[in-house]
Simulated assay, not measured.
Amino acid sequence: MRTKLTIMGLVLAAALVAVGVVTAVALVVDLRAALALVAVAVLGYLLVIEPRIRRWGATDVEVDRAMPGDEMIPDGRGPTRAITIHAAPHEVWPWLVQIGYGRAGWYSYDWIDNDGRPSADRIVPEFQDLKVGDPILMLPGYGPAVRAIEPDRWIVSGDPEFGTYCWALYPARDGGTRLVCRFRQNWPITPGTLFWTLIVGPGSFIMERKMLKTIKARAERATAGHRTVVP
């Protein structure tokens, strides 16, 4: 419940700030100036900022490469983000497979997405057996089900209606791993999807970036010899 309320509060606060800025400009100048400011800001975000955060950390090859789950939404689009981890794929996998609310957490900002509980900083044996059909909860009672899984390689969750999410581990030349994440959807352009792009989109980027960096840090720390298994 705390996670739901926190996320709803953040989205509402962002919307209120946007409305407040427009209202202030309209009061100080006029409505047309306020609308022009909004148009410039939206175009600036869509043309300059959004393309950058949509592919944070990913190479051209990774953005263009087909990933597991793409076939469920052939005409889909969405962000592809990646990070290099100095650990082998089989050493990163245990951290990835235990992800989710009510499991090891999301390795992101826990006060937002894990009811304030810290995400696991060790490999938890009871969360290692993820199967097709199991939910990966994002909020209490809500989360996409696993559609396909290949140990040490990738997890695909979601569905064609709401979108698919893929985490994939690719061996790097130096013996490390490229962790690549892709969200794919084919939503029609509506006020709701535009709202998602402008307000929720940056928030999801901030959360996912933190997740990738935390997985990297914990997998590399474990590989360096730290104890990782819960007794």
Rank of each mutant, 00 (worst) to 15 (best):
G102D: 07
T59Y: 05
A219R: 06
Y109H: 13
H226V: 15
L37R: 00
A222N: 04
P118Q: 11
D134C: 13
A224G: 12
I136E: 06
G141A: 11
W56P: 07
Y170T: 10
P51V: 06
A18F: 02
N186Q: 14
A145P: 05
R54C: 15
P79E: 05
G105S: 14
W95S: 04
W95F: 11
Y165E: 07
P151V: 01
G163F: 00
A13S: 15
L5S: 12
T80L: 11
V180I: 15
F162V: 13
T59V: 09
V132S: 11
R81H: 10
V17R: 07
R117Y: 14
R122E: 02
V229W: 04
P191I: 01
R81Q: 14
A58K: 03
A87M: 04
V63I: 11
F127L: 10
W56Q: 02
K4R: 12
G57N: 00
S204P: 08
V38G: 08
P171E: 08
T177H: 05
V22S: 03
A39K: 00
I155W: 03
D134F: 04
A24M: 07
A222Y: 02
V124T: 08
Q128A: 11
L169S: 06
Q185R: 10
T3I: 06
E150S: 10
L37N: 02
P125L: 07
V180C: 10
V132W: 09
L169A: 05
A13C: 14
G225A: 12
M72G: 06
A168Q: 09
A33R: 03
I206Y: 05
P125S: 08
E126I: 04
N114K: 11
I85M: 02
G163R: 00
D64M: 15
T193G: 01
P160E: 05
T84V: 14
G158V: 01
